[in-house]
């Protein structure tokens, strides 16, 4: 077990390293100089070739890429100093992911500020789609083949074939803009500790959009998994014992049906935590997703690599956690 954890964590470190290196190289050898956006901004779009050269020199783009990547990696562990323009130096303590080219603040600080928003969106949305999706899926599986089941399955199929960004956008357009429902009037992220009610109402629409859209998929997963479980021989055995129907369905059926659903959920939840770009953009929530979108638009290299690293770490951990949970849920699984 311990050896397994160490093995998985080591392989995770390798993946994180490769992700960060790839992002770094993509920008380094990309078509435009990574220093271009910061030069444009600092000179109010009068970036002359001389000025650009000056920025490149200060930011280290004249050094070989591996020296600069080394500086970056070293900064993550021990911190470093960063110089944009001519003289002023910015101190960047470990873990230093650099300074944002747009805002000139430490990337790590910005990321920390945005995490609560993304975590709030992800937790609420995921909770909602599990709470809706699994019971609906189980109910449909128990009524398999009936009119209600068929109607549900086909309507959810239609709903889930709409692209998510369109679905979320329409939700916002109708509920907030068109009908002006007061509860959804002010979407966005507000600190939970300052004003829980505002936090709740600001995120509610995002949760509903994520929850409903996600629940269409989780209903399908749960239904399929449950239909399969209920047709197993051990369900017949449970019935033959004289167990009550509810025990047969939940203790024996659902227990088995949940295992594959948990696996999918772990990966999905990791993806949500890594930033829900559409959700955050549409509902005006300043989280990791929104931030990474701005960074890509502004070619803000330090922020882009930070968000990519963050996604990689979150996904590696969620995969690891799923595997650990899996070994608890299914006694036949042995980790090695």
């Amino acid at each position: 077990m311990f050896a397994y954890l160490v093995k998985r964590l080591l392989s995770g470190v390798v993946v994180v390293f490769l992700v960060s290196l790839s992002i770094f190289l993509l920008f380094w050898f990309g078509p435009s100089s990574p220093a271009q956006p910061i030069c444009d901004r600092d000179t109010s779009n009068r970036c002359t070739p001389e000025r650009l050269a000056n920025f490149e020199e200060n930011l280290g783009y004249n050094n070989p890429w591996y020296t600069e990547y080394g500086t970056f990696v070293k900064g993550v562990f021990v911190g470093r100093e960063i110089q944009f323009g001519s003289t002023k130096k910015f101190d960047c303590p470990a873990p230093c992911l650099g300074y944002s080219y747009r805002t000139k603040t430490p990337v790590f600080e910005e990321m920390k500020e945005r995490m609560p928003a993304t975590f709030s969106v992800a937790l609420g949305g995921a909770a909602l789609y599990l709470v809706l999706g699994i019971p609906i899926g189980v109910a449909a599986a128990r009524r398999r083949g009936t009119v209600a089941d068929k109607a549900l399955v086909s309507s959810f199929l239609v709903l889930s074939s709409v692209p998510y960004y369109l679905f979320a956008l329409l939700t916002w357009l109708f509920l907030t803009v068109q009908w002006e429902i007061p509860l959804f009037a002010e979407t966005g992220y507000f600190s939970f500790t300052e004003n829980p009610a505002k936090w709740f109402s600001g995120l509610l629409l995002a949760w509903i959009a994520l929850g409903i859209f996600g629940c269409t998929q989780y209903t399908r997963y749960a239904r399929g998994s449950m239909v399969e479980a209920l047709s197993e021989d051990y369900i017949r055995t449970a019935k033959a014992k004289g167990l009550a129907q509810s025990k047969v369905v939940y203790k024996h059926g659902l227990r088995a049906a949940l295992v594959p659903v948990v696996t999918i959920f772990g990966i999905d939840f990791g993806t949500l935590l890594a930033g829900t770009i559409f959700t955050e953009r549409i509902f005006d929530i300043d989280g990791i997703g929104f931030w990474s979108l701005q960074a890509v638009n502004g070619r803000d290299l330090p922020v882009v690599s930070a968000t990519a690293l963050f996604s990689a770490i979150v996904l590696i951990f969620s995969n690891l956690i799923v595997d650990l949970i899996y070994s608890v849920l299914d006694p036949r699984v042995r980790l090695s």
């Binding site: 021989d233 051990y234 055995t237 849920l329």
Partner: peptide
């Protein structure tokens, strides 16, 4: 088939 007829998780 007792392997299939017994619940694998209990």
């Amino acid at each position: 088939d007792a392997l299939a007829a017994l619940h694998p998780f209990y």
